[in-house]
Amino acid sequence: MQRGARWNYSAWVPEDGRNSMTYNKLLAASALAIVAGTSAASADTWRYAFEEAMDEVQGKFAQKFKEEIEANSDHQVQLFPFGTLGESSDIMEQAQSGILQFVDQSPGFTGALIPEAQVFFVPYLLPQDEGELVSFFKNSKAINELFPPLYAEQGLELLTMFPEGEVMMTTTGPVKGPEDLNEVKFRVMTNPLLVESYKSFGATPTPLPWGEVYGALQTGIIQGQENPAFFIESTKMYEVTDHITRLGHNNFTTAVMANLDFYDGLEEDDQNLIDDAIDVAFDYITAYQDGLTEKSLEKIKEAKTSITITTLTEEERAPFMATAQDVEAEFLDIGGDQAQEILDQMKADLNAAAGAEG
């Protein structure tokens, strides 16, 4: 999945269905000029960009983090929602270069930098049970021990990963099995494993920047996309699709990172301050999401009574689940030097989470 700000897309997409890219580039350039113009000596102002709007999950996490930092120190945190500094690739470059101190970005995009992070797109790997899911993200050795050195190689300090909700398909036609996705152009992030996953589902995966998705659906360039319910509701993807399908195949994952040189250069007290604020924000955001999916689906149904929301049965999911082994094998082929170790450890962590909840 992913990603974008909570724009009213029906208002911002021109009549020809294309994004106003010139406007977006000018907006991003102006915002970046403001950021770059901030004095480097003002070390007590930390800049944090993310891939969603302020009132979406990443925005809520960022606000809680900001609240904790500012309540327990003299530091200030400046927040940049999606679109204010460009697309996902732009904010990652800014974080790596030190223009930004913090960035929140899905492994769907960092997979190009860190191939092992694509493991989060192996279908049916993560559990649907919310308690197991939270326990896994909080206690996983793969996340807390194996991934940080891989992020460090890219100039990033991995602070945490957290789930954002069950991923659902929104399509212009109904989906009950892989045959219904035949020749369907389905928007995916620019992630090789996600492309492979949707190929195995029967679709024609079509990588697109998030800013182009609404217009592409509106004009029929693509016929589907995937995201959690809150994001489908807030970005109004239901306006340009007619069916929401719950395959139970994944939960959207995101990662909060700091610029490594920035983090390593801090006094221990400030590092502890950041780590503590991350822990508080993690607990807050997992509690915040309790019931969020169903509330979002209710809002969608109220806004568009004609939309269908279908949860596939175990029998209907079976042919989709059967593709997981092939996608897993593809991950081991393209997922980097530590792909096998990461996958094995994640499975052990998931078993431990299931046992803890059981």
Rank of each mutant, 00 (worst) to 15 (best):
G4M: 15
A112C: 06
D129W: 08
A33V: 03
G202S: 14
I34C: 06
K236L: 02
M237I: 11
F50C: 04
G291R: 08
T245W: 09
S197P: 05
D44T: 15
G59K: 04
Q340S: 10
P149V: 06
Q225M: 05
F186D: 01
E132H: 10
D74E: 12
D264V: 00
D264M: 09
F80N: 04
F147R: 07
E294V: 02
L85M: 07
G177D: 02
K304Y: 05
T310E: 01
L158K: 10
V35H: 08
S88K: 08
F136H: 06
R6Q: 15
I309L: 09
P178M: 02
I91L: 00
V188E: 02
L247G: 03
Y48A: 05
E316W: 02
S296G: 02
V327F: 09
K301F: 11
F120E: 04
G202Q: 14
I222F: 09
S89H: 12
I285C: 04
A49F: 09
E315N: 11
E330R: 14
L156C: 08
G155E: 01
E239S: 06
E51V: 01
L85F: 02
I69S: 03
A43Y: 13
M21L: 04
D283W: 10
E67V: 05
F162G: 00
H249L: 07
A318F: 14
